[in-house]
């Protein structure tokens, strides 16, 4: 109940700040682009759109939202109600998941994308959104200014995006398999390429592990810097 109230509030908050309009425009543009592309490029383009924008939107936005809330001392007033820290954080994560998945769903519907491995694909889209949002939260907990957040986020964003080179088949190393993004790029690419079941399972396990690690760090950082700032 508390969680539901918090999720609803975060979605309304994002709506009032124009996120849904911005992503509606982007979604329409992406659909048009995908429709115009030759058949053979549709799936790879979809993978890149989801990887770099739709699933990464939490990463991009969360810093500003947390900073704005902190600037208005809102966490302070939330944490003197029975609302628990994990509920606060889950609300942030679920609200972005909702926007990402709604946008991804519309794009796939509008561009007539589908296929056999849809379950793996959807799981990949959900997990990449979660992981990106968590990465954003980890850095937002301590950032002082939006620009400060961007620097940190851009640095880490570029770093974890390195497996894109493997995806483009320009450069590969086993080291990339440590990155969560290697796994998301496999799952977001299942409609395009036939991956072996072991590759898919590896990706799922890798993303679940990353999810728990990042959740733990996020919780600790928020507990220390936002709920109990000293």
């Amino acid at each position: 109940m508390r969680l539901l109230a918090a999720v609803a509030q975060d979605i309304r908050f994002q709506f009032r700040h124009g996120f849904y309009y911005a992503y509606l425009v982007l979604t329409v543009l992406y659909i048009i682009t995908l429709r115009l592309l030759p058949e053979s490029l549709v799936h790879p383009a979809l993978t890149l759109i989801l990887f770099t924008d739709i699933c990464a939107l939490g990463f991009f936005f969360i810093g500003a939202i947390v900073l704005l809330e902190r600037g208005q001392n809102l966490p302070q007033s939330l944490f003197v109600t029975p609302l628990r820290l994990h509920e606060y954080l889950l609300a942030k994560i679920f609200s972005f998941l909702f926007l990402s998945i709604a946008s991804a769903f519309l794009i796939m519907l509008g561009a007539f994308v589908g296929g056999q491995d849809l379950i793996w694909f959807i799981f990949g889209a959900i997990m990449s959104t979660l992981i990106y949002t968590l990465f954003g939260l980890v850095f937002a907990a301590r950032a002082r200014h939006v620009n400060d957040y961007f620097v940190k986020a851009l640095g880490i964003g570029l770093l974890i995006s390195l497996p894109i080179f493997a995806y483009l088949r320009l450069f590969d190393t086993p080291l990339f398999y440590v990155f969560p993004t290697r796994a998301t790029l496999i799952l977001l690419d299942v409609l395009n390429v036939d991956y072996s079941i072991s590759e898919k399972l590896f990706s799922v396990v890798s993303l679940v592990i990353w999810f728990f690690i990042l959740s733990g760090i996020t919780y600790q950082r928020f507990d220390k810097h936002v709920r109990h700032p000293a």
Partner: peptide, 16 residues
């Protein structure tokens, strides 16, 4: 935009 968060939404539109 009225604040940083709206600024972000607008920066996405700017990219278009």
């Amino acid at each position: 935009s009225e604040n940083k968060v709206e600024g972000l939404a607008f920066s996405k539109v700017l990219g278009i």
